[in-house]
Amino acid sequence: MKSIILQTATRYLLPILLLFSFFLLFRGHNSPGGGFVGGLVAAAAYALYSIAFGVEEAKKLLRIEPVYLIATGLMFALISGMIAFFSFDTFMTGKWSDFNFPLFGKLGSPLLFDLGVYVVVIGITLKILFTISEEVKP
């Protein structure tokens, strides 16, 4: 299924969708969005790419094996919970910076947690997607 129109459109859509997924991730704390949706959108971007160019191309574009994304994301989530240990608080106590960063606003451990969810969701979706689309190759 090679379609010039789809391929050309995908080339422009992919970065926009990824940017949009970041946007969803970071606005999530104050408005609708968040790591889960963001991750799904990013995964959908790669899914679109793999439909337009084939799974092999999508894998090449991603560069990293999705399982590592899953592991990294889980690690982020775990570390975000452990940040509180440094001030002798219990696991998963939210910690926030006292000042605002440009663009992001306040940074804190829940944001890292959300980032972890984002990465895990991308990893999971793509792992399933790649595995299934390879398996059914006759």
Partner: peptide
Amino acid sequence: KGRNIVNVILVDYRALDTL
């Protein structure tokens, strides 16, 4: 520190569940 209650519940109040 967030105005989106759903998201704050997911990543803070109930972060252990989400994990």
